[in-house]
Write a protein that binds this DNA or RNA. Sequence first.
DNA 1: ACGTGGTGTTAGAGAGACCAAACAAAACCG
DNA 2: CGGTTTTGTTTGGTCTCTCTAACACCACGT
Lengths: 247, 247
Amino acid sequence: MTDHTLDPTLTPALEDYLETILRLSRRFEGLVRVRDIALARDVKPGSVSPAMKRLDELGLIEYERREHVRLTERGAVAARRVDARHRVLRRFFEGFLALPADLAEQDACAAEHALSPETIDRLVRLFEYMEMCPEGQDHLQRFHRCSLVHADVAPCPNDCPGDPIALAERTDQMSIADLTPGQRGRVRQIEGQGAIRQRLLDMGILPDAEIELARVAPAGDPLWIRLQGFELALRRAEAASVKVQAR
Amino acid sequence: MTDHTLDPTLTPALEDYLETILRLSRRFEGLVRVRDIALARDVKPGSVSPAMKRLDELGLIEYERREHVRLTERGAVAARRVDARHRVLRRFFEGFLALPADLAEQDACAAEHALSPETIDRLVRLFEYMEMCPEGQDHLQRFHRCSLVHADVAPCPNDCPGDPIALAERTDQMSIADLTPGQRGRVRQIEGQGAIRQRLLDMGILPDAEIELARVAPAGDPLWIRLQGFELALRRAEAASVKVQAR
DNA sequence: ACGTGGTGTTAGAGAGACCAAACAAAACCG
DNA sequence: CGGTTTTGTTTGGTCTCTCTAACACCACGT
């Protein structure tokens, strides 16, 4: 696992400290105290002190007396870099994937140290594209309406063929439960909601996965599939909510 | 930063071990040795042994003699969960963002422990949507052609209004360099390529950012902007490649 | 049977990050 | 002022993950 901290000498934790200092600088006009950092990062002051010492040694911040921490120019550059990545991810999660704000924030924090600069760049290109192509916007909204927001209830307000409800009414759709033992298929859509859906995804039942119905219990209810060389048991209700393309 | 390891007792490293064991099981039919794991994860066998001990204590694997490691049912469930997330991310990075395979793999490895289950779910919904809506596919391809693959050279083969080259020829586009000092604008597109683009993104010059041209050096070349309350220096060439919507 | 390699384990050490608690220094305030 | 509170530092300890290096197996093969 490569670590995409942007400066090889910077660990993810130190990057987080820099980012936090940058944000607090914006808020408090440069008067950032150890206490504020500890609060913002939800760690104890005793953890912050040594980190500040480290950043100071690296020439990324300056202590101001026993009072304030200030970013040096080099530190500010590094901090802005992390912050920019954070913003990109946050926007992607919230604006594109329509995640709730708190989750978007959380995931952005976690992913900002992990992803390559290229990936971030691609996301930016995605934003540019979405904004430049009017159809892009339409499409995104459609995506949100069809699949994301309140996916548990709302039918697609358009004629979108991907709408789960429209799909459920189509008779040409088969589910795993409709396969005959030994028959293979390709997963097209997971219709289950909530915990069921989560369980299916966790098992590796993802769009495009190749699946074979291995066997069915006499009662018809537990049901075994082969997926990537392993057998998995599914309840009938779960199997029925996985739409497949038989082959 | 919350850690989205799926079982609270599992650290990212342990999850990685589980995932590795799962993959090697597929490859070697369950005959997984410490050596293989060490090779796959690029660590020394001396690091693997204690990790196996830990996983065994947690009831996630079984040692087979001094020879082989086998996932228990609980371990397999956890491993498949991690693996599923990995697949989703890999597909997103490679198939959707058109990252090269090696980078997609790398980033998937890094992000699979960091993101919330909801985020993964949204990505799956995105795949489902893209596959169900024929226009989704078209749109994605357009996005790739316009903005991603070989973005340094290729013009958009369609009439896409977001095509960088088409854009460059449009006269209604202003860049930061065209603003008058004190004027504000909203970033719409970053046209620079390679290192310049990277530098601009790193500074926080991202689509939709609010920018003000603070002042221009007498010679006209260094040029200062205000961004999120801070002043940044830009070279004229850099400024010229940031297209803005003046206001 | 006896070395010889390939493998696995163990022990010791270090890096990084954190906490708790004792301590030091300001700051605040009657 | 002098005492109390707030804030920061230091120390010692924990945890996780890793490495190196010494050691223990086992398996083979002539």
